[in-house]
Simulated assay, not measured.
Amino acid sequence: MNDQAAEQATDQAIEQAADVATETFVAHRNLLFTVAYEMLGSAADAEDVLQETWLRWIRTDLQEVRDQRAYLVRITTRQALNRLRTMTRRKESYVGPWLPEPLLTAPDVAEDAELAESVSMALMLVLETLSPTERAVFVLREVFDVGYEEIAAAVDKSPAAVRQIAHRARRHVDARRPRETVSASRTRAALESFQRALETGDLQGLLDVLAPEVVLLTDGGGVIRAAVRPVSGADKVSRFILGGIVKHRNLVTADPTVANGHPALFVRVNGEIDGIITARVDAGHITGLYYVRNPEKLTRIASQTPLTLR
Rank of each mutant, 00 (worst) to 15 (best):
D255V: 12
D255R: 14
V215P: 04
V237G: 06
G243L: 10
D219F: 05
V214I: 11
V252D: 13
G261L: 14
E213V: 03
P263L: 13
V223D: 08
I224V: 14
V258S: 05
A254M: 04
R239A: 04
A259L: 10
A227G: 02
A227M: 03
D235S: 10
K236P: 01
L242P: 09
F266P: 08
F240L: 13
D219C: 08
L265W: 07
V231E: 07
F266E: 11
V252N: 13
V258Q: 07
A254P: 03
V258H: 02
A226V: 00
V228S: 08
S232W: 04
A226L: 03
S238G: 11
N260V: 04
T218Y: 00
P230E: 09
R239T: 12
D219I: 07
N260I: 11
S238T: 13
A226R: 00
V258W: 06
E213Y: 02
V252P: 08
V228Y: 11
R239P: 01
F266C: 11
D219W: 01
G233Q: 07
A254V: 04
R239S: 07
A227W: 00
F240E: 10
K236S: 08
V252R: 09
D219G: 09
E213S: 13
H248A: 13
V246W: 13
V228F: 07
S232Y: 04
T257R: 04
S232L: 02
A234Y: 08
V228W: 12
T257V: 14
V231T: 06
A234L: 01
V214E: 14
L251C: 05
L216T: 04
D255F: 01
D235F: 03
P230Y: 03
L251V: 04
L242D: 12
S238W: 12
V246D: 13
R268N: 09
V237P: 01
F266W: 06
L217M: 09
D255W: 02
A226M: 01
H262A: 15
A259E: 05
V237L: 09
V228D: 15
P256G: 11
D235K: 10
G222H: 04
G261R: 07
G221H: 04
V246N: 13
N250R: 15
S238N: 07
I224H: 03
I224Y: 00
D219H: 06
L265A: 08
H248D: 15
H262R: 15
R225E: 10
S232M: 03
G244C: 08
L265N: 02
K247C: 02
L242C: 13
L265I: 05
L216V: 05
N250Y: 03
H262V: 13
G244K: 07
L216I: 03
L217C: 08
R225S: 09
V223C: 00
V267S: 06
D235H: 10
R268W: 01
V223I: 12
L251T: 13
F266L: 14
D235M: 01
L251N: 15
K236V: 01
